[in-house]
Simulated scan of single mutants.
Amino acid sequence: MMTHDIEVAGERLTLHAQRAIHWAARRTLLVSDVHFGKGAVFRRAGIAVPSGDTEDDLARLDALIAEFAPARLVVLGDLVHGAATERSGWVEKVRTWRESHAEVAMDLIAGNHDRHFDVATLGIDVRPDHVFAPPFVFAHHPSPHKGGYTLAGHVHPGVTVRDGWRRHRLPAFVFDRDVAMLPAFGTLTGLHEIVPESGRRIVATTPAGLVPVRQRGRV
């Protein structure tokens, strides 16, 4: 299954295997940790990674927008990865992409990496720290807020799933009592292992669909 509905704070959220959440009641699409330009940063440092990560991520966003027709896209921090200039190849690609979706409002909850580039020049509104959207709080850092249930990123959560003798490390959605963490959306992002435990809901993502994970890593 490419989508999976889950109830959080009394609201129905649709998880998508492309590492996004759609909140239908508010026509809001949520992603986190896109890290545009990360491949370019690696290549400048002499690390051999393939190009095309920006195009791949933009194509995935295009597909999600086509599927859900959101009125608003919210990025929960770290839209960009590092310093860039107007001559950086990814900047013009993202700006052109933004213009092609002028009908969709786009907000960035500023993350720790976003200080390296003025995201507002891309046509995306930047919100510092967190935004209240009752019953939720949109944030980058996964900290509880008195104003609502936190939907956040930053951690790049992942989980190990066993398939017989094989082990797979997969990006995952993680839902705790007061805070949820979205998997990193960007193609070139690592994982931080999350341990299944009592009361924690985890849904792993694969290119073929979503995998709810039971306690102790069993599926």
Rank of each mutant, 00 (worst) to 15 (best):
M1S: 14
T3C: 08
I6K: 11
E7F: 00
E7T: 14
V8P: 00
G10Y: 05
G10E: 08
E11S: 15
T14C: 15
R19S: 06
W23M: 04
A24N: 13
A25Q: 14
R26C: 08
R27M: 03
L29H: 04
D33P: 12
H35N: 11
H35L: 02
H35V: 09
F36D: 11
F36G: 01
K38N: 10
K38F: 00
A40D: 15
A40K: 10
A40S: 15
V41C: 12
F42H: 13
R43Y: 07
R43M: 10
G52P: 05
L58R: 08
L58S: 09
R60Y: 00
R60Q: 14
D62I: 01
D62Q: 10
L64E: 10
I65W: 02
E67Q: 14
F68C: 12
A69S: 13
P70R: 10
R72Y: 01
L73C: 03
V74S: 03
V75Q: 03
L76R: 03
L79N: 05
L79D: 04
H81L: 03
A84L: 10
T85W: 05
S88V: 04
S88C: 07
G89H: 05
W90S: 05
V91A: 09
E92C: 01
E92W: 06
K93Q: 15
T96S: 12
S100W: 00
A102S: 15
V104L: 02
A105M: 10
M106Y: 02
M106N: 04
L108S: 11
N112W: 05
H113F: 09
H116P: 00
F117A: 05
F117L: 14
F117K: 04
V119I: 09
T121K: 14
V131Y: 07
V131C: 06
A133M: 11
P135K: 12
A139N: 08
H141C: 01
S143Q: 14
H145Y: 10
K146C: 00
G147T: 13
G148W: 04
L151P: 01
A152T: 06
V155G: 01
V155R: 09
P157S: 08
P157L: 02
P157K: 00
G158S: 04
V159E: 07
V159F: 02
V159P: 02
V159K: 00
R162S: 13
W165Q: 13
R167D: 09
R167V: 03
L170S: 07
P171M: 12
P171F: 06
P171Y: 11
A172V: 05
F173G: 06
D178A: 12
M181F: 02
L182T: 04
A184F: 09
G186E: 07
L188V: 11
T189C: 13
E193K: 11
P196V: 00
R201C: 04
R201W: 00
V203R: 08
V203S: 08
T205C: 15
T205F: 01
P207G: 12
L210I: 01
L210P: 02
Q215R: 15
G217D: 04
R218T: 12
